[in-house]
Amino acid sequence: MSIDVIIPDDLWEEDNEGVITSWLVSDGATVEVGTLVAEVMVEKIQCEVESPAAGTIKITKEEDDVVNKGDVIAHIEA
């Protein structure tokens, strides 16, 4: 089973774009529910993205990639 890591709609207020500034896990790492996996910056504010599931993470968006709310940035293989 694969679960998407999605940029939550309430991660920041407005509807502007963000950018992934850091992946805090490597591709293929094991994560738990709630593991902090990435930092996304919107203007100058940093937001945290957590893993929605436990399993192995497959990263699909790189650091410096521009992201919007609702974008899938990784999958978790349970």
């Binding site: 850091s22 992946w23 896990v25 293929g28 790492a29 094991t30």
Partner: peptide, 10 residues
């Protein structure tokens, strides 16, 4: 699997 467990920090 636990050896692939990691925690990167800034």
């Amino acid at each position: 699997m636990s050896d692939t467990k990691e925690r990167k920090l800034t």
